[in-house]
Measured scan of single mutants.
Amino acid sequence: ENVVSAPMPGKVLRVLVRVGDRVRVGQGLLVLEAMKMENEIPSPRDGVVKRILVKEGEIVDTGQPLIELG
């Protein structure tokens, strides 16, 4: 699984990683606000951040690609 998608609609509050960062399974990639709750979106696997597909403040839909892992 190379693309991390939004599990719910919401607003991207914070991106916690940068392109080139090594991440571990379960590590927070970004914080999504949904229904006034902050939800940290975890990495599904170990890898390297290849691309960040959203910006802070952006509104996303369920299933929208957020981050690509390499």
Rank of each mutant, 00 (worst) to 15 (best):
L29Q: 06
E40V: 05
V3I: 06
I59C: 01
L66D: 00
K11W: 13
K11F: 10
V25C: 01
L13W: 11
E33H: 04
I67V: 06
G57R: 10
G63D: 04
E56T: 07
M35D: 13
L66P: 00
G10A: 13
E56C: 01
V54K: 06
R14E: 14
E1P: 05
M35L: 04
G57N: 10
K50P: 11
V17F: 03
L30F: 04
R45L: 04
N2Q: 10
Q64R: 14
E68D: 12
R24G: 05
S43P: 01
D21N: 03
R51E: 12
G47L: 10
G26E: 14
V23L: 04
K50R: 06
P44M: 06
L13K: 12
K11S: 13
I67T: 10
G26Y: 14
V54H: 13
G47A: 08
R14W: 14
L66M: 08
D61W: 13
I52A: 04
L13T: 04
V49H: 01
I41F: 13
R51A: 09
V60Q: 03
P44A: 12
N2L: 15
K11I: 10
G26K: 06
V4D: 01
L30G: 05
R22F: 10
G47Q: 08
R18C: 00
L66C: 00
E40I: 09
E38Q: 04
I67M: 11
A6P: 02
L16E: 11
R51S: 09
I52S: 11
G10D: 07
G28D: 11
P7Q: 13
L16K: 11
D46A: 06
G63A: 03
A34T: 15
V3G: 02
R18I: 10
L16P: 11
V23M: 12
N2M: 11
E38A: 15
P42V: 04
E68C: 00
L30M: 06
E1L: 00
K11R: 09
G63R: 14
V60I: 12
V60P: 01
E40D: 03
G28L: 08
P44N: 14
N39Y: 12
A6E: 02
A6S: 02
A34N: 06
L29G: 01
G47R: 04
G28K: 06
T62F: 07
M8I: 14
L13D: 04
I41R: 13
I41W: 05
I67P: 00
E58G: 02
K55M: 13
I52P: 15
G70K: 03
M35W: 10
E40M: 04
R45M: 05
R18D: 02
V23Y: 10
V60A: 09
L69D: 04
M37D: 12
V12Y: 02
E58A: 14
L29C: 00
A6C: 00
G20C: 01
I52D: 10
L66K: 00
K11M: 08
R45K: 06
V15C: 01
P9W: 08
E58I: 12
G70I: 06
G10N: 12
E68I: 13
K55Q: 09
D61N: 03
E58P: 02
K55Y: 04
N2W: 11
K55P: 03
R14G: 12
S43Q: 02
M37Y: 07
P65V: 07
K11C: 00
S43W: 15
V23T: 10
L13Q: 07
P65C: 01
E1V: 11
E33G: 07
Q27C: 01
E56A: 08
G47K: 04
D46Y: 02
E58K: 13
R22Q: 15
G47D: 12
L29R: 00
D21Q: 02
L16Y: 15
V17N: 14
E40C: 00
R24C: 01
V15H: 04
M8Y: 02
R14Y: 14
I52Y: 10
V19K: 01
V54T: 05
E68W: 04
E58C: 01
L29F: 08
L69P: 02
R22G: 14
G57F: 13
V54R: 14
E38G: 04
R51P: 03
S43D: 02
I41T: 15
A34D: 12
R24H: 09
V17P: 11
L13S: 15
I41H: 14
P44T: 10
G63V: 07
M37V: 05
M8Q: 12
L32Y: 06
V49S: 02
R51T: 13
V15G: 14
V25I: 15
R22I: 06
V4I: 03
V60G: 01
V31Q: 10
R22W: 12
V4N: 10
L66Q: 04
Q64I: 09
R45T: 02
V19Q: 03
N2P: 12
E40Q: 05
I41E: 11
V17E: 15
V12R: 00
P44S: 15
V4A: 12
K55L: 13
L29T: 06
G57W: 08
N2K: 08
G20A: 07
V17H: 11
K36L: 08
G70A: 13
G70Y: 09
L66G: 09
V19R: 14
L30K: 00
Q64S: 10
S5G: 06
L53V: 14
R18N: 12
I41M: 14
N2E: 14
V4L: 02
R18L: 09
D46Q: 04
R51I: 15
V3D: 14
G47F: 12
G57I: 10
V15E: 05
K50E: 11
M8G: 15
D21K: 02
V19I: 15
P44D: 03
V48F: 11
R24V: 12
V4S: 08
L29H: 01
P65H: 14
V17C: 01
V48Q: 14
R14L: 05
V54E: 12
D61E: 14
G10Y: 04
R22K: 11
V54Y: 06
R22D: 12
